[in-house]
Design a protein around this nucleic acid. Structure first.
Lengths: 359, 359
DNA sequence: TTGTAGGCGTTATCAT
DNA sequence: ATGATAACGCCTACAA
C-alpha cells in the first residue's frame, strides 16, 4: 500500500511536455517545441556565444518545459570521450583514498563529471593491460593516478598513448607541471624531525616505508637530512622497515624498542605505523610520551583517535585531490599549467615530550 | 630524454591491424577483416549462441589481430544504459564506504562494469533532485544505496521511476528481496550485550546512534532486548546519544562516566564512538577493561588499532557490498531473488573484563 | 546461421 | 546567427 501511495505521488511529475511515454525528451523534442534546429539546441546547452539572446531564451524555455536532460552517452559517443574521471589507485592506506575522492568530488561538483574508481594491483603482471582495457573500453575524459602507482612512468605513458588525460599525485614532482600535483614530504619530515631534536632527543628511531614508494624515499631523506644538519647519528639499528600498515608498525616498533639503549623518540613514515609503534610501546608498558615520543605522517583520523593523540605531519591529500581534478578539467586551456605543490605541516598533539636534561 | 625512450618503447604496439591512425578499430574494421557483417561481429562479442563455430573463430581472430575493444559509449547509447554501477551514499563512516566499495569491485571484477561513486547530502533539500539529475544524465545500469540514505523510501522509488535498477543495503530488511541486502544488527547487538551480562555486568551504558538511522534503531532494540530478557534495568541516565562520530563518543562517554555509580560497561553503537568512549575513560585515568568494559560495532580497523583492542561486532559490510552488486547484475534473471541476510558476529578482543563478584 | 536497414542522441562540417 | 546532413559505434528488427 505504501507502494501505491508513493506511485501516485511520483506519477504526473514527468513528461510535462507530452513526449513519448517512458522515454525522456531528446534534443529533437526541444528543437521541435522551440521551433529551431537541433544544432541550435546543442549550441544552447553548450554555451555557444554566437546565439541571439531571444533564440537562446526560447530554447531554454522549451528545455525547462520538457525537463530535457542531455544524454551523456550520446555526447560521449560523438565527442570520443565521456564525462567520467577515473581514479586509479593501488593504495595501502584507505583514508588517503577516501580523502582524495572527497577532494575530486568537490572539484567536479556542479559539473556533469562523475568519478569512477579503479583499484589496481601493483605487482600483478597483468596490471598494465588491465588498465589499458579499462581505458579503451570506458573512454574516460581523464584519470588521476594516486601514489604509489602514480610513480609508474610507463603507466602514465600508456595513458597518454591511449589519448587519456592524466594527472599524477605524489610526494615529489613526478612529471611535467600539467600532469602533476605534489607535496613536499622531505621538507615536512625534516621539520618534524627538528621538532624532536630541539626537544632534546638524540636517539631517534625511524620506521621507514616500503621500498619502491617514492613517499617512503622522500620521507626518509627528510629525516636523515634533519639528523645530519644537527650532527645526530643514525645507527642502522635505529632504522626499521615497515610496509605502511599497522601490523608492520607494531613489529618495527618492537624491534626498535629492543635496542639498548632504546630510542627516546621514533618517527614513523605514516600514521598507521605510528599507531603500531604506540601499540608496541604499550605492550611493554612504556608510557607515551614519557618514555617514548612518537611522530607519524598523514594526519588520518587514527592519529587523533589513539591515546595519546599523535603529533603528526598533515598531508593535504584532499586539497591535492581537488587541485589535481581541477588541473585535469582545465587541461585544455592553452595557458601552461602552474606547478602545484602543497606543503605538509606539523600538527602538534600529545605524543612528544621534552626530554629531561641529563646531569 | 626519458620521454623519448619511453615513446620509443611505447610506439609500435598499437594499430597492428592497420586501421586509421590514432583511432581504435571499430566493429566495422573487424567485420571487414573477418569478411562478415558487423552484426555477426556484434553477435560474437555478445556471446550469441546461434553462430557457426568456424565463423566465431574467424571473427575472434580478427578481433585479436586488430586489438578491437568494444566502445561502451556506443553500446550504452544503443541499449539505453551504460556499464556503470553507482554507489550513492551519505555516510559518516568512511571505513564503511570503503569496505562496500571493495565488495562491489570484487563483484564486478572481470566484467565490463565500473563503479562510480556519488556522495550526497542527506538533509539538503535539493538531494532528491540532485540524484535525479545524476541518474538522468549518466543513465547508469543500476545503483547501490548505502545506509543511512538507503533507508529513504522515496529515493528508492525515484530510482525505479527513472528506470534505474537499485539495491539497498541496510541493518534490516528495507525492501523486497530483489532490492535489498541486509544484516541482522538487532540480534548481533543482543548477543554482544549478553556477552557483558554473563560476565557479571549489570550497570551497562549505551551510546546510541543518531535519530533517523535504522541501524541506530536496530542496535538499540537489540541492546534493550538483551537487558530485558535478563531483567537488567536500563535507567535513562545510562543512555547517551551520539552521531556515529568519534567526538560524539567522547562526549557521550564522559556523560555516562559522570553518573554515580558509573557503569561498569558501555556498548557503543559503532567503533568510532567506542574509541571515543575509550578516550573519555583515559582522560579520567580509568583503566580499560579493569574499570570499564567497552564493546563497539563494525569492526573497522580502529577497533583493532586502539589500546586495548576493542571487542566489537563485525559487520560484514564488504560481503554485503559484494552480494548487493551481484544482485544488481543478476537482477534481470527471471528467478525470484533470494533474501540476503548477512549475520554479524562478535569479535572478542581485550576491552571486556569479568566483573569481580561482589560480597 | 547470417545480412540489411534503421535508430539511439549528440556533436561537427559546411553551407546559408 | 542558424540549419541540413553526416558522422560517432553499436544494437534490434526483420529479412534472407
Amino acid at each position: 500500500m505504501a507502494d501505491v501511495a508513493l506511485a501516485t505521488i511520483g506519477s504526473g511529475s514527468r513528461e510535462p511536455g507530452g513526449s513519448v511515454r517512458g522515454s525522456s525528451p531528446t534534443i529533437n523534442d526541444v528543437a521541435r517545441v522551440a521551433g529551431v534546429s537541433k544544432k541550435t539546441v546543442s549550441r544552447v546547452i553548450n554555451d555557444s556565444p554566437l546565439l541571439r539572446v531571444e533564440t537562446r531564451q526560447r530554447v531554454e524555455l522549451a528545455i525547462a518545459e520538457l525537463g530535457f536532460v542531455p544524454n551523456l552517452q550520446a555526447r560521449g559517443l560523438a565527442m570520443g570521450h565521456n564525462s567520467l574521471i577515473g581514479l586509479i589507485h593501488d593504495n595501502p592506506n584507505s583514508q588517503m583514498v577516501l580523502g582524495v575522492q572527497q577532494g575530486i568530488l568537490e572539484a567536479i561538483r556542479d559539473t556533469d563529471f562523475a568519478l569512477v574508481v579503479r583499484p589496481v594491483d601493483r605487482g600483478s603482471p597483468g596490471m598494465m593491460d588491465d588498465v589499458r582495457r579499462f581505458l579503451e573500453r570506458q573512454r574516460l575524459f581523464g584519470v588521476m593516478l594516486l601514489p604509489p602507482i602514480s610513480e609508474n612512468d610507463l603507466l602514465a605513458r600508456q595513458c597518454a598513448e591511449l589519448g587519456c588525460r592524466y594527472v599524477r599525485m605524489g610526494s615529489a614532482r613526478l612529471d611535467a607541471d600539467a600532469h602533476c600535483v605534489s607535496s613536499n614530504d622531505a621538507e615536512a619530515v625534516a621539520a618534524a624531525t627538528r621538532h624532536l631534536i630541539v626537544r632534546g632527543h638524540r636517539r631517534i628511531g625511524l620506521v621507514a616505508g616500503p621500498h619502491g614508494f617514492r613517499s617512503a624515499k622522500e620521507r626518509r631523506a627528510g629525516f636523515e637530512a634533519a639528523l645530519n644538519e644537527a650532527n645526530v647519528a643514525l645507527p642502522r639499528s635505529l632504522i626499521a622497515q615497515g610496509d605502511y600498515r599497522f601490523d608492520s608498525g607494531v613489529i618495527a616498533g618492537s624491534r626498535l624498542l629492543d635496542q639498548v639503549p632504546p630510542p627516546t623518540a621514533i618517527f614513523a613514515c605514516n600514521d598507521e605505523m605510528a599507531a603500531g609503534v604506540l601499540h608496541a610501546a604499550r605492550q611493554r608498558d612504556l608510557a607515551v610520551p614519557r618514555d617514548l615520543s612518537i611522530i607519524g605522517f598523514d594526519d588520518t583520523p587514527i592519529a587523533a583517535h589513539v591515546w595519546p593523540p599523535l603529533t603528526t605531519v598533515r598531508w593535504p591529500i584532499q586539497a591535492m585531490g581537488q587541485a589535481a581534478a581541477r588541473k585535469l578539467l582545465d587541461g585544455s586551456s592553452d595557458a601552461p599549467a602552474p606547478p602545484s605543490v602543497f606543503p605538509s605541516k606539523l600538527i602538534v598533539r600529545g605524543s612528544v615530550a621534552d626530554l629531561e636534561v641529563g646531569p
